[in-house]
Design a binder for these strands. Sequence first.
RNA 1: GGCCCCAUCGUCUAACGGUCAGGACACCACUCUUUCAAGGUGGUAAUACGGGUUCGAUUCCCGUUGGGGUCACCA
Length: 478
Amino acid sequence: MINTLPRVRFAPSPTGYLHVGGARTALFNWLFARKTGGVFLLRIEDTDAQRSTDEHTQVILDGLKWLGLDWDVGPVFQGAEVERHRADAERLLADGKAYRCFCTKEELEAQRKAAGSGGDAFKYDRRCDRLSAEEVKARIESGAPNVIRFRMPDEEIAWDDAVHSRIVFQGKDLDDLVILRSDRTPIYNMAVVSDDIAMRITHVIRGDDHISNTPKQIALYRALGAPIPIFAHVPMILGADGKKLSKRHGATAVGDYRNLGILPAAMRNFLALMGWSPGEDREILSEEEMLALFSLEGIQKKPAVFDTTKLEWMNGQYLSRLPAQDLVEPVARELDRMSVNYGALHVLLPYIEAVKARSRTILDIARQVAVRLDSRQVEYDEKARKLMDKMGADYAKSLTAATGTLRALEESEWSAEPILEALKARVESDGMKLGDLLQPIRVALTGSTVSEPVNELLAVVGRSSSLARLTAAAERSG
RNA sequence: GGCCCCAUCGUCUAACGGUCAGGACACCACUCUUUCAAGGUGGUAAUACGGGUUCGAUUCCCGUUGGGGUCACCA
């Protein structure tokens, strides 16, 4: 039956970037639509003309595409539908379910203050609802600005939330909300309900922060005589300090993670695990597996802290499963940004091969490739400095010894095996530990205490560059 | 403050009345490597608290505490 197919929507407002919480909401909608064979609609809620920009809209679309979340309908812009929003609001007025309110913002503020500090949330006292028909008519004719206010019924409003199960509100606790402004533009809750009805949305999957909007919207559905969709309120994503994710937590937009060198597949996998569990202790999931296992019932009720360390681990997992060939282009892009010369693309392959296993992001890989390509990219990190301090004069001595041994190798012998053998022989004859000879090389060449095996490192960097860099490093510290 | 939501290792989570409370990240140890890692193996670590219901509670009910959301002519 064609009309039982689920229809879901992701409805961001283009007043900021696509943050990870929004991306995760979009992902759940997409997963649900794809799993059920339903329709995924994208709606841009741009009715806040002050804060909405085309640039933000574009960033949101790019972010969704990057994550591989394709939509079936849209993007439709909410702003294009104000006529219908207005018509729905006026229908409510005509049906006697809403009334005109002449109170100005200033008067409302005064009422709020007068009523204030009473403990309860402020509720409009409906003074304009008690105006006589003649009075209303007179005020309209005098040109007094007015809004349309929805008369909240005094009844129980409840729904069976797909993730929270039953949630109950009392109409008497809710305010008479404005649904049409004095400039005749709609208010959010009116626009959303009007759009969701028009788009025949069957499942509203959105953030937890909309729970308190839901009873207002249900009241509107009822008043409009429309069927009420199933609601699924997914928990928020929090920062490491347990607070709502915001700019001060650092990277919060999906674009930030793209720039950091996170793969879209890893991001999508990680996001799916924020508040949802596939069961069976599964962590790394392909798109097919996600679709097979996904269900609204598996969604967690409690908010989740965004753990970038685990995201990076997961990205590392994806990275190590990816052939180096697939990484050439993204790494090259990064190197271009860093203005590092590499000549032709295929040159990068052995470098990427060398560092891939120890990298968690594409940026990691690019930085390490850069260091191997160009000595000017070397920066000594804290551990490296510590080692140099600890070794003192032995550092330069060790480097000099290694250089002497390595210089004896011909260009044709410069590969991992012979290099290792030569160094081992040197250690043997000098009676030192292999690590004492190798670690300084590692530090001198990379600025770090961590790398692929040193003989492989030397092979990748190449004979002339290695010798030059080791000599320079020995002189500098000696 | 009113209304609403939530509560298992530091973090993400499994458990749908009976488990030594499982897995993953992080951390620690060991292992492999005549090298640092990566990998492999193992370990530390949790049911917020108090009452019930039950032969038996992480699980069901109530309360407390703690966190979060929301209360606009914003979305």
